Simulated scan of single mutants.
Amino acid sequence: MLVVEDEPLIGMDIEDAIEEMGHEVVGPIAELDEALDIASNAALECAILDINIRGGHAYPVADMLRKRGLPMLLLSSYGEHSLPERLHKEARLPKPFTSAQLEKEIRDLCTRAISCSQ
């Protein structure tokens, strides 16, 4: 599972939650260029993307994941209205979030990912 998050503490919390649920983490990645390269080329099942990261918005990463048919969870402290319309139907978890909310969203994300085991 790709994790794109530029806040170190949030990234570690997400990484810990994913690993505790038995899944492998790619990241956390904090830079847009690196995240786009991984989203384009790595073997991935799904992704969690913070919208605002170093280098800009993660929209190109989300677009690449959509092109590859991979489910994602978008993290943002902004409302849906701040997202491009093409991303309105993607799962979103508003910041700040609780551990329980994050774990539920990870389970839902893995359910949507064909090759992500429970």
Rank of each mutant, 00 (worst) to 15 (best):
M1L: 10
V3L: 06
D6C: 10
D6V: 00
P8M: 14
P8W: 07
I10V: 14
M12K: 11
D13C: 04
I14Y: 04
E15D: 00
E15V: 02
E15K: 15
D16H: 01
D16N: 11
D16P: 00
A17I: 02
I18S: 08
E20T: 04
G22S: 02
G22E: 02
H23P: 01
V25W: 06
V25S: 04
V26S: 05
V26P: 06
P28Q: 13
L32G: 05
L32V: 09
D33C: 03
E34V: 15
I38K: 15
N41M: 06
A42V: 07
A42D: 13
E45M: 09
C46G: 13
C46Y: 09
I48L: 15
I48M: 06
L49N: 05
D50R: 04
D50V: 02
N52K: 14
N52L: 14
I53V: 13
I53N: 03
I53C: 13
G55M: 12
G55W: 13
G55S: 05
G56A: 02
G56L: 11
Y59E: 13
V61Y: 06
A62T: 09
A62F: 09
A62I: 12
D63G: 01
R66W: 01
K67F: 08
G69C: 08
P71I: 02
P71E: 06
M72V: 04
L74E: 12
L75M: 11
S76A: 13
G79D: 08
G79M: 06
E80M: 04
H81C: 03
S82R: 13
P84L: 11
P84V: 15
L87E: 01
H88D: 11
K89Q: 14
E90H: 01
E90W: 08
L93G: 07
L93I: 01
P94A: 15
P94F: 03
K95P: 12
K95D: 09
K95Y: 04
K95S: 08
K95T: 10
P96N: 15
F97H: 03
F97D: 01
T98Y: 02
T98V: 04
A100Y: 01
A100E: 14
Q101H: 05
K104C: 01
E105W: 12
E105P: 02
I106K: 05
R107T: 09
L109T: 11
A113Y: 11
S117D: 00
S117F: 05
S117R: 13
S117I: 13
Q118H: 13
Q118N: 13
